[in-house]
Amino acid sequence: MQSELNESNRISKRLVLTAAIILIAVPLTIAFGIFFLDDKKYYIISLLIIIYTMIPFFISFEKRRPQARELLVIAILCAITVAGRAAFVMLPQVKPVAAIVIISGVCFGPTSGFLVGAVSAFVSNIFFGQGPSTPWQMFCFGLIGFLAGILFRKGIIQKSRFSLCIFGGISVIVIYGGIINLSALLMFSAKFSWKALMTIYAAGIPFDLVHAASTMFFLVVLSNPMIVILDRIKKKYGLIET
């Protein structure tokens, strides 16, 4: 009961913070871009907005002073994700990141899913080199983990291979592919045009399909054993979902 109360309290606080950022900071940034930068610096403005949307998660996580156990579990999941990406680094686009992030989101809740996604994207880029697309990757994987947690809680996806695979495939193509391709376009194109966007999406299709297929493969292979282990640990040590 107490934890439920805390939970709803926390979510509403985050909602307020998110709303404040979305309603005040994002329009201000866009206005700054239009009036002071002559509506030409799409990349910097979009980068700022992406960073703003991640701030509420990080602040609300810091604010509630997480327990050491919680931190350790998240760090372990991130490390598994990073090690998994390192193991398949030779094969382009074959990344187990999304699969493990989805499993974490389903087992430990939306906030943990977001953190595992964002932190593992950041840390794996420490190993493979940071670049201008790091914040975008953090945001995409974080969002995939967050959505997995939310949809599981709402009962839309289950802890079954089939439903996780469908969610994994769709989320990688729509969220990851959709956002990363857009960021690539904004990075080196002067004017935003629908034609260029369509072309870059078309060019990205093979990569997104490989990424989605590999995510589904990893979900088929890993979901059952990992979910069993994570649920067992949760029960054994009484870890709460976040």
């Binding site: 810091e62 998240i74 991130c78 490390a79 090690a83």
Partner: peptide, 20 residues
């Protein structure tokens, strides 16, 4: 500024070689 997150970060960095 972000003590918990940077602890996660440093632990993740440590765990990767440990797992290997």
């Amino acid at each position: 500024i972000i003590p918990s997150l940077s602890l996660i970060l440093s632990m993740t960095l440590r765990f990767v070689p440990k797992f290997k």
